[in-house]
Design a protein around this nucleic acid. Structure first.
Length: 519
DNA sequence: GGACGGTGAAACTTCAGGTTGCCTC
DNA sequence: GAAGTTTCACCGTCC
């Protein structure tokens, strides 16, 4: 492809390098430290370019139609793609990420402005790796990124089999900063790697799974096991490790995930020194589900409380939103504090956990979980992605990731409810998981079970009085064609066993057979 | 006089990512 | 700590 039109030199170094990269017919990755900045940088470069290119136009078009209704983010990406530029971060939907990655690999896209996503996991080399921001926001304010991160990013420069060289470029605003960067990153050594084992959430999970798998039955074995880990090797502070493990064991016992001999539960208890462990039924399941035992205990408390509460989808959404696994929760901003608190009062009757009081330090986290749950609630009440982006500042890609985790947590809650014999809860949770997956109100559930019918088409059908499988069977093909288009309509009829004598075979993943469906 | 619009400075906000984990027709 | 966003004061214009 020919280089695109170029104006003159600009006062932004990144812009100049980007334009130069295109001029010499090469590609570059530009690493920045926020999603917003990735989008803005891409947009600024795009503004300087002219382009009439059908291939790019079609890429732009498919980025725009990746969701049922394009968001501002989609429009921005589409604009950049028309010029052969893209931005890439976790807020994009997988389909858009694929478009960008594939077309950067084949050389159609020239520049990607990205957050550190592309430095890890994805294999996407470029002639130039431009690292715009070497500082990143942390709890201590803005600080230098780790040398390891720098190496990851600069390591993207140079494509094996294509380039003989690669260029990794960082930008300094002064001579003194230049020297600092050189010393710290170019000539510096990467950081040591430290074990994160002795952190309670990690230990909780592993101690329980070791016991649940019958891999370890005595405290002594447990200590021996962890004494051989990298953590023990690195810190040699076995007493600290043992004390955390003992604390974890006490917690697991208190939560009834394990039984400890010597507590009167075991007839054949040895001396205290030779404590023996055994996982309970629910402890085994928790280990299998691989959720943090703390989360499991929290959910059990909530599910127990459910019998005294009014139940709503929100009840379970808030429960799932207040776990370590779902983090980061949506943050309640200063300005929306009052608004969220108001909605919380509205939902208060449905909240299963024991609410902290306003004066407790946990209250802020609790409000965040409420906001997160309200966001999920909007989704299952059919608000679109643009609304969620504006209202809750959550981007489509982040939404998908959160839905995924919430589904796993709700599945776990479902399994726990089964063990606790709360059948009435199981039913509600199953329904909620489906609503969450499709982002629909309950009334659309019969329809979204059809292949190629999602939230949008189901709503169209419903509005036109086709409200379940029976209605769909009774509707004639021309009506369906009018509403859904010919191909989809035919497909629907086929699934219903009409028009085509044979039963559909290529059912969608996770979909039940319509013959089993009677609701 | 007052409504309105444009402008720029000041005040205020917000800030990466993602692995695994479970189950199923 | 810096970039982006919102707020607000100020000024000019027009009716």
């Amino acid at each position: 492809m020919k280089p695109l039109g170029i104006d003159e030199d600009f006062d932004s170094a990144v812009l100049n390098i980007a334009i130069d990269t295109i001029r010499i017919g090469k590609q570059a990755l530009i690493f920045v430290n926020t999603k917003k900045s990735a989008e803005k940088t891409a947009e600024e470069i795009s503004k300087k370019l002219k382009s009439e290119n059908e291939v790019l136009d079609s890429l732009s078009e498919s980025a725009l139609s990746s969701l049922s209704k394009p968001t501002k983010q989609c429009e921005r990406l589409a604009y950049c793609l028309k010029k052969g530029i893209a931005f890439h971060h976790a807020g994009l939907v997988q389909k858009q990420k694929d478009i960008i990655e594939d077309n950067f690999r084949n050389g159609i896209i020239k520049i990607i402005c990205c957050t550190p996503t592309l430095a890890y996991g994805v294999d996407l080399p470029a002639f130039r790796a431009i690292i715009k921001d070497l500082k990143r926001y942390t709890v201590h304010g803005l600080s230098w990124i780790p040398v390891l991160d720098y190496m990851q990013m600069s390591g993207r420069a140079g494509r094996p089999n294509y380039d003989n060289e690669g260029q990794s470029i960082t930008i300094a605003i002064s001579n003194s900063e230049k020297e600092k960067i050189e010393e710290r990153y170019v000539n510096g050594a990467p950081e040591e790697i430290y074990s994160k084992l002795a952190v309670e959430p990690v230990l909780r999970t592993y101690v329980l799974s070791l016991i649940a798998a019958n891999f370890i039955t005595a405290k002594k074995d447990l200590f021996d096991f962890f004494d051989k880990t990298f953590y023990a090797h690195q810190f040699k502070d076995l007493r600290r490790l043992h004390s955390i493990i003992s604390k974890v064991i006490d917690m697991l016992e208190e939560w009834e995930f394990i039984m400890v001999s010597g507590d009167g539960d075991f007839a054949s208890a040895n001396e205290l020194k030779e404590q023996k462990f055994k996982a309970t039924l629910i402890g085994k399941r928790v280990a299998e589900l691989y959720i943090d035992p703390l989360t499991a205990n929290f959910m059990i408390t909530c599910l127990r409380n459910a019998s005294d509460k009014k139940l709503d989808a929100f009840s379970f959404l808030q429960m799932a939103s207040h776990t370590l696994e779902i983090r980061p929760m949506l943050k309640v901003g200063l300005r929306e504090h009052d608004k969220i608190q108001e909605s919380m009062l509205e939902f208060s009757d449905f909240i299963l956990e024991n609410e902290p009081s306003m004066y407790e330090p946990e209250y802020e986290e609790f409000l965040n979980s409420v906001k997160t749950a309200i966001m999920f609630n909007s989704w299952i009440n059919e608000q679109d992605e643009q609304f969620l982006l504006e209202e809750y500042n959550i981007r489509p890609g982040e939404l998908r990731a959160k839905i995924d985790i919430a589904d796993w947590l709700l599945y776990s809650a479902e399994e726990i409810s089964k063990i606790m014999h709360y059948q009435y809860l199981v039913k509600e949770i199953v329904k909620l998981r489906l609503r969450l997956k499709y982002g629909v109100k309950e009334e659309l559930l019969p329809l979204v079970r059809l292949e190629n019918i999602g939230r949008v088409r189901a709503r169209i059908l419903f509005r036109n009085r086709i409200r379940d499988i029976k209605d769909a069977k009774n509707a004639d093909l021309s009506t369906l064609t009018q509403l859904l288009g010919e191909k989809i309509a035919l497909g629907v009829k086929k699934q219903l066993g009409q028009e085509e004598p044979e039963v559909p075979e290529n059912k969608r993943k996770g979909q039940i057979s319509l013959r089993d469906w009677d609701g």
